[in-house]
Design a protein around this nucleic acid. Sequence first.
DNA 1: GCACGTCTCTACCATCTGGTAGAGACGTGC
DNA 2: GCACGTCTCTACCAGATGGTAGAGACGTGC
Lengths: 201, 201
Amino acid sequence: MSERSDVASTRRRILEASLDLFGTRGVDGVSLDDIAAVVGVRKQTVLYWFASKDDLVVAALAIAAEQLAVVIEAAVRAAPDDPLDRVDAVVCAVFRPAVRRPALLGLIREVSRLPTAQADALATGIQPLIERATSYLRAEMAAGRLRQGDPALIAALAYATLTGIATEPETLRAVGWIPSAAGLRRLRDELRRYLAAALRP
Amino acid sequence: MSERSDVASTRRRILEASLDLFGTRGVDGVSLDDIAAVVGVRKQTVLYWFASKDDLVVAALAIAAEQLAVVIEAAVRAAPDDPLDRVDAVVCAVFRPAVRRPALLGLIREVSRLPTAQADALATGIQPLIERATSYLRAEMAAGRLRQGDPALIAALAYATLTGIATEPETLRAVGWIPSAAGLRRLRDELRRYLAAALRP
DNA sequence: GCACGTCTCTACCATCTGGTAGAGACGTGC
DNA sequence: GCACGTCTCTACCAGATGGTAGAGACGTGC
């Protein structure tokens, strides 16, 4: 059966489905059968491509990290050299996929609270992203192009807020606040304004 | 056996343990046996006090909402009449328990992504808290004591940031950023500064 | 002494879970 | 024609899970 594999390889589709399901419903809340059903395949096929559920989790996290890295990379390249513009561009660039696909940042959170073994996977995919951001901020602060401050603090705040906005719409919807597209855009702009105010030298 | 019940009723201790476990590891990631073990009791005792796991989840969410309500209530009463001071007081008041006990806000998130039935429980405990905050902001904006804006936007951003800070330390720790007490305090102050800047008329 | 509330005990159940085993089907490229 | 990669099928397994059933133990208050 290769009709489906032509469109997108089964392996890839299992990974994408796992990213979405694990990232939104949690690793414990999703069975291999659930994933197989979404892909339109049998559980054995999932286990044909990935030796175990743990392996699948790690692999899904890896493609999430990769997709985030690509988005950030593109934003940085396209942005002007000014560090404030760059930070702004990265926030905007990450915001869109993060909101459209809450599982992207959600999966990071899910993995990070797993029993220690799998959490190590964060070190390979995600940690470099965070470290790159903080070291960039540190360098620009040292050069006087950004206000002096704790780069880790800024990065952590931006990350926490982004993750909160990306993964809480479910909550806020359940609680009566309907996050419209326009509302989310304004949330993004608030965050941008806030970071600009905190970083402008 | 009432030696233990004297200290704190078994029912209450089951509820508190459920709040912590469900809120940090997720409803699906915690079994009734896990909760019983933490409390030092048998699974049958848990099911003696709560008809089902679903009931326990709903009850745990209820006490989380109540504890948040108490904290907010006290902060509002103790704060001066100025709305900026009040917002600041509420943020500070919620921040401390939210960071010390990530499960408080974490449980809200966990419940909100459950199959629809239990998510209705959010309407009784949490929704009133959010609505009260937004209606307060709206009233003060209308009175010109706060800058005009979308109250839901501000409430949502504060909520998302607070939840992010409260529940992401695990992630950030896994990723190399160690959230010290001082670091968390500075995160809180950043949020306060931002809200003050956004709300000052 | 008795009823009651609280909790434990043994024992059980159906269901779901991750995972295994092995055979076979189908299409492709050589 | 053959090997290979991909995927399905039937069938199974051990363990964990939510939940049930019923008897009994212990202490308290009446």
